[in-house]
Design a protein around this nucleic acid. Structure first.
Length: 427
DNA sequence: TCTGGGGTCCTAGGACCC
DNA sequence: TCTGGGGTCCTAGGACCC
């Protein structure tokens, strides 16, 4: 029988912020999305105040200030670095690990069942070590399928079945499991989102137990094979394998809302050029080439009373490439085609598509400069990695960059930038 | 004033082929 | 009155995830 563990960091972004700022201890902390737009992470104190996930910050700002909530801008460099450290610690617990997201990993524990004390003790060890070495709290869910491990993790967080942050389904009696599933809302299941939840409710399926015991064939015909698979996983039949090797991205998106509305085409061009530089860097990081470029621009959809315009156009490239100069030239060409004057633009983005490994590509007769371009891009990436993004950059990205996003309360790069090192003052 | 960003997978339908 | 059958590829849209 297969066994999976899902290890998930508690309030990850908020916890990372607290880690390096003792003044935030025991204080309610939220982390905001780009542009300081929405609440994307909440500390335990904030959850206790009943602040929901995802609310626009400006809507709760006044209330939040009254409660003494500290709002931090998101600092992805810091979170990514801490995330890597968590994975490093976890890697000692199983040779087979899938990094599922920035704050979650699946570990395969098949064959670990004979450990002294059982898997729950092993899970508790993971928890302890991450707390000791990194100062972060995690919860561990253990079960025969990934879907069940997610659910066990939910139970660990809510203290439903497991004690103290670890929940192991594997030793539970089937009747106890059924009783537990009776009490959990079906919307908590991995793969059941808002829409499907509503349709299930219309069919009278409200709890995890009801979904597990529903007819899989019927669900397949009414929904999809995805829902059917979820049901089988809930029954303990493992259908989703561990994905240890991260597959290359099939598309790479770089997009942002602007700090303020943009009317000027030149500003839009700078933004698009800058997003493309970022996307192309990611493309080269996985050693791939893109065969198509998409650009899109849009006005603010949250203000339907203002004139609305949005357009996205994709162009296939004559030769697949990872050269920022070529990709940017195409992106700007598309932008000029779709740009209309008289609108206030709120967001723009680029997408690289038709992605394939560089080594599987043949250079066309008319693209003889490609190897030299590869070498140039390697140098640019090297410099950017060492000295920071944008040194050097294409002139098209602009210097002033009025369209940059707001990040009003950004924490230092404590672990990723020498200038961000905490300072200690001797008295 | 102020509403994130980046992905994947599946399905349906159309174009086209033999 | 009758209108094949089977297949691939592509795209758009919808659903999900964090």
């Amino acid at each position: 029988m297969s066994v999976f563990a899902l290890v998930d960091c508690n309030n990850f972004y908020a916890s990372c912020e607290k880690l390096f700022a003792p003044r935030l201890k025991n204080r309610p902390v939220v982390v905001l999305s780009n542009n300081d737009g929405c609440v994307v992470a909440r500390s335990a104190e904030v959850k206790a105040l009943g602040i929901p996930m995802g609310v626009p910050w400006f809507k709760i700002k006044d209330d939040a200030r009254r409660h003494g909530i500290v709002a931090m801008s998101s600092n992805y460099a810091l979170y990514a670095d801490m995330s890597n450290r968590v994975v490093e610690v976890l890697s000692a617990f199983s040779p087979n690990i899938e990094v599922y997201s920035i704050d979650e990993s699946f570990l395969e524990l098949s064959g670990f069942g004979n450990l002294p004390g059982g898997l729950a003790v092993y899970g508790a060890e993971m928890r302890q070590r991450i707390a000791d070495w990194l100062g972060l709290a995690v919860c561990v869910g253990i079960a025969p399928t990934k879907t069940l491990a997610k659910l066990a993790n939910h139970c660990a967080k809510k203290n439903l079945a497991g004690a103290d942050g670890v929940c192991d389904f594997t030793p539970l009696h089937p009747d106890d499991l059924t009783q537990l599933f009776d009490r959990i809302d079906v919307g908590e299941v991995w793969g059941i989102g808002r829409k499907i939840n509503a349709r299930l409710a219309a069919m009278g399926i409200n709890t995890v137990r009801q979904l597990r015991d529903a007819d899989a064939e019927t669900l397949r015909s009414r929904f999809s094979v995805v829902v059917e698979r979820t049901v089988r996983e809930l029954r303990g039949l493992s259908c989703i394998d561990l994905q240890e090797v991260t597959p290359d991205k099939q598309q790479i998106i770089s997009s942002r809302s602007f700090g303020q509305l943009i009317h000027d085409r030149v500003d839009l061009e700078e933004a698009v050029a800058s997003y493309m530089a970022k996307a192309a860097e990611k493309l080269r990081a996985q050693d791939s080439l893109a065969g198509a470029v998409q650009v899109y621009i849009r006005t603010n959809i949250f203000k339907p009373e203002t004139p609305q315009y949005q357009r996205a156009v994709t162009v296939p490239l004559p030769d697949a490439t990872a050269d920022t100069r070529v990709l940017t030239a195409w992106a700007l060409r598309v932008l000029r085609r779709i740009y209309r004057t008289g609108y206030g633009y709120h967001k723009a983005g680029v997408m690289l598509a038709d992605i394939a490994p560089r080594l599987s590509q043949q250079y066309s007769l008319f693209n003889a400069g490609a190897p030299r371009a590869d070498a140039l891009m390697r140098v640019v990436d090297g410099i950017n990695q060492r000295y920071g993004r944008g040194l050097p950059q294409l002139a098209a990205e602009g210097i002033e960059q009025d369209w940059r996003m707001r990040r009003g309360n950004l924490s230092p790069g404590y672990t990723t930038d020498w200038r961000g090192l905490p300072k200690v003052k001797a008295q």
